[in-house]
Each structure stands twice: as C-alpha cells, then as structure tokens.
Design a protein around this nucleic acid. Structure first.
Length: 472
DNA sequence: TGAAATGTTGGGGCG
DNA sequence: ACGCCCCAACATTTC
C-alpha cells in the first residue's frame, strides 16, 4: 500500500499535468495546495490574484471530486505543512511539478530534503514552461540577456509536442482533514472583485474553452489586431497560464490542431513569439533573481527618480492623470484585473518617464491588481519599459500617449469605454481633450475629468535630462 | 514594441 | 518654358 502527496501550486489543472499522472499510480492520493505563510507577503498573490486563486482552487476541487479525489487546502508554512501531512497520512511518496521563481524553488529544495529525511520518495516533474531555465543557454554556457537569440535557440531546440490526457479516475484520498478553498481566506470581505467576476471565468475548463475559441478564429488576425486594445484580439490566456490552468504545451497543441482550418500561420507565429517572451522572463528571473527590485543594468542604480511622489502615484493608480489612454488602461486594470499589453507599455512609460516615479512602484501595483500577476513577466516588462533591464527599450524611447492612442485606438472606442467623461468627444480629440472647444472642456471639467497632470512635452524633456545624468 | 527634429525629394502653383 | 518657392511625403538622425 503506497500513499502519495501531490503538491499543487501553479499547475491547477488535470490535463497535461506530469506530477498528477505520476502520483496517480499509487493506492492513495492526497492532492494538496498550501497558501505559504512563510513566503514574503510581497511575493505572495496580490489582491486580484487571490480572488482568482480562490475560484481556481474551487474549480479544481470540483474536477477532482468528479474523479474520486478531492483537494486539501491548507494555510501554513509549506515545508512544515507537507512534513506534517506526510506523517499523518503515512505518505510514502511526494510529487510536484517544478516551479522557477527564486523563493519558490528554494522552498521546494528544502521541502524535498525534509521529506526525504523522513523516508519519502520525492519526485519532481517538468514544470509549466516550454523550456526549463537551464535548458536554454548561450554557446558559452551563460544565460541570454537578449530576446531574439534566446528565442532562436528555443526554436532550434524545438518547442516539443504532445500533451498528456487527464486521468479518468484518481486514487481515493487517505484519511485526512477536509480543507475547502474557503479555509484559505482568500476572498476579501468587500466584494470589490465584482468587475473581475463579470470579466473572467477562472478554472481549467474555462482555460480550455478560451484557448479553443482563440485558436478557432482570433489567432488568424492576431498579428494585425494585437495592438488594438478596443478589440478582443488577444488570447486573454495570461491568468490561466499564470495559475497553470493550462500549460503552454497545450496552447501550442490547440493552435497546431487548428492551424490549417484557420490558415493562420503569420498570426500563430506572432502569438507563439509572445509565449517566447514568457519563457524569456522566467529564464531571466532564474538567472538574475535580484532583478525583482534591482535594475539589471547597474547604471540605473544611480537614476534620479523623484521622491515625495505619493500623490502623483495615487493619481496614476486611480486613472486620474488627465491623459485619456493612461486613465483608460488604469481603470480597465482596476475594474477587470487585466490590461491590454500595448496599454501596459504606455502606462508604464508614463509612470517611469513622464512622472519619474521608480518602476518598482508600478511593478508593485501591477502585482497587486493584475489577475495574471506573474513575478517573471512583470519584472521583465517593467525593466524593459524603464530601460534598465535585459534587451530593454533604450531609455529615450518615450511613448507619447496621445500618438499611441491615435495610432492604436483611432476612433477612441477604448478610451471612451473606460473613461466615459470623454464620450462626447469626436475621434480626433478623444486622446487630447485639452484641445477641445472650451464649451466641451467645461462640460468635461464638470464631469470631473482632470486636466493633464503633466505637460507631455516638458516631462519628456525632463526625463531625457535625467537619463543623461546617468549616461554621462 | 518611439518620438521629434532635421534632411531630402519632387510635384505643382505662380510670376 | 523656366526658375523659384512652398510644402507634403518620406527618409534619416538624434534623443
């Protein structure tokens, strides 16, 4: 008689889950999720992600129950919890899929050692990346810092194929206390997540439905429409991927299954390249863990960020900057827990360049408000925009939110959706309400829409001057 | 996965 | 017909 612990973390799915498949060969199986109280709160799930996590765990529990199993959710130190559960259930084996965030990987090493000390056989399986961070290296063995050669190496290595079907039936759980998702206390008392609940359906079943829907149509126009935030042209898979409700291998498989029907080679390539950025983010975080809050480029340690910016930071967070595209993005984020990627770049550029507020503040806000809050992707994105990271945009690449708006939201549909104060403006003026006739301006002022908090030209010049400070 | 300034070219209006 | 100027359109450079 053997009993296995299956430690689930960012792999909340039954399909293509290597650890689950291996663990299912035992007589008894206890799937467990631990909300790790030893983890630094800054690295744990933020508010929006906690809502998602709750829903996803509940969905996973339901799916497990259909197969004769169930999920145990526990709050506590991860290592102590697993050691305790092993003792209480007489577990002989433990399984999990590897994860790659520095703190998590360290916890995993310590936990594996502790369980092995107590006589368990511990097996870790391939995690939710196409390539584990050490699998891709430069010819000299070092890590990549530039995306294109990284991605070429990935493509040359081969993206792999084949995903595992979910088991029909799972071994029954050993005697153990019940622990539904509610015991984790992830949901806030105030129902601020209403907008998220209206926008998203967490859980594996919905992840699978989303990828099928995307593969069946929108991916064909992805290359053309991916930068148009008013359209539903992107996959919206980021939170599903973050929690591992679907693996990137499954995404690739779904795309290639539909490839000929959709006739969408260019769109697919362009989309798969985005999965490549996800791989690259994890590669970088693994090799440069300090970049979570330190600039990868050491020159930026001396950057003259402003101080005493709390009020300005709050206006950015609340979508009250007076710049339509920035405010629309920040309000979309607050309401839905998500923001279109083109707009993420614009709001990030505005915070770091036009407001000279450290990118770490923006990164922290995103981690707290995004349902797809992912340490690797978020760190890469913010350092990229700030110009301090790997393969970064040169610092002087400063987005002009008016031009970006006119280019990617030409009729103003996106900004009007999230900033209703702008509804009456003609498309020509939707991204620069300050140029509207004065009667229209006073109407907007009455609706509460603010004047721009900075002059875009002056603040651009100020940013360039600050940049010259550190480049000498 | 930038924007703005500066340079170049060529068509057309006009004396 | 010709030269001149203007300026849009595009290309290049700079930040």
């Amino acid at each position: 008689m053997t009993t296995a612990l299956l430690w689930l973390r960012n792999d909340l799915r039954l399909t293509d889950n290597p650890a689950l498949l291996s663990a299912a060969s035992h007589d008894r199986l206890l799937p467990v999720f631990v909300l790790d109280t030893d983890e630094s709160p800054a690295l744990g799930p933020g508010g929006a992600a906690r809502w998602w996590l709750h829903e996803s765990l509940a969905a996973l529990d339901a799916a497990l129950r259909q197969r004769g199993s169930r999920l145990l959710c526990v709050r506590g130190g991860a290592m102590a919890t697993l050691v305790d559960l092993a003792a209480r259930t007489g577990a002989t084996h433990a399984y999990w899929n590897r994860r790659f965030e520095p703190a998590g990987a360290e916890t995993d090493r310590a936990t594996a050692a502790a369980l092995r000390d107590r006589g368990l056989e511990v097996t870790t399986e391939r995690g939710g990346l196409l390539f584990e961070p050490e699998e891709i290296q430069r010819a000299d063995g070092g890590p990549f810092k530039v995306f294109t050669p990284f991605w070429k190496t990935c493509l040359r290595t081969g993206l792999g194929a084949g995903t595992a079907a979910p088991p029909h039936r799972l071994p029954p759980p050993p005697d153990a206390p019940a622990g539904p998702a509610e015991t984790l206390g992830l949901l806030p008392r105030i129902r601020w997540y209403q907008g998220m609940a209206e926008t998203w359906n967490p859980g594996e079943a919905c992840a699978l439905a989303s990828v099928e829907a995307f593969a069946a149509g929108p991916v064909g126009l992805y290359k053309e429409h991916r930068d148009t935030p008013a359209l539903a042209a992107t996959s919206r898979l980021s939170p599903h991927l973050h929690f591992g409700e679907i693996s990137p291998r499954q995404v690739l498989a779904a795309l290639s299954a539909r490839a000929e029907a959709a006739g969408a080679v260019a769109g697919q390539e362009s989309y798969v390249r985005q999965l490549g950025w996800r791989e690259f983010g994890h590669h970088l975080l693994h090799h440069f863990p300090e970049t979570v809050d330190q600039p990868l480029n050491p020159r930026f340690a001396a950057f003259p960020w402003r101080s005493g910016y709390d009020d300005d930071l709050a206006r950015w967070q609340q979508g009250q900057t007076g710049i339509p595209l920035v405010d629309a993005g920040m309000r979309e984020l607050w309401h839905t827990g998500w923001m279109h990627n083109r707009v993420r770049m614009v709001v990030a550029s505005f915070l770091t360049k036009n407001l000279l507020i450290p990118w770490q503040e923006g990164a922290r806000w995103f981690l707290d408000t995004l349902v797809d809050a992912d340490l690797a992707n978020n760190t890469l994105g913010w350092q990229w925009v700030a110009g301090s990271g790997a393969d970064a945009a040169p610092y002087f690449r400063i987005f002009n939110p008016v031009l970006q708006g006119e280019k990617f939201d030409p009729d103003g549909a996106y900004v009007k959706r999230w900033v209703p104060e702008l509804a009456a403006l003609p498309p020509r003026l939707a991204h620069k309400p300050w140029a509207a006739p004065s009667a229209e301006q006073s109407r907007m002022a009455a609706s509460g829409y603010p004047e721009p908090m900075v002059d875009l030209r002056d603040s651009r010049e100020r940013a360039l001057a600050a940049y010259r400070n550190i480049t000498g």
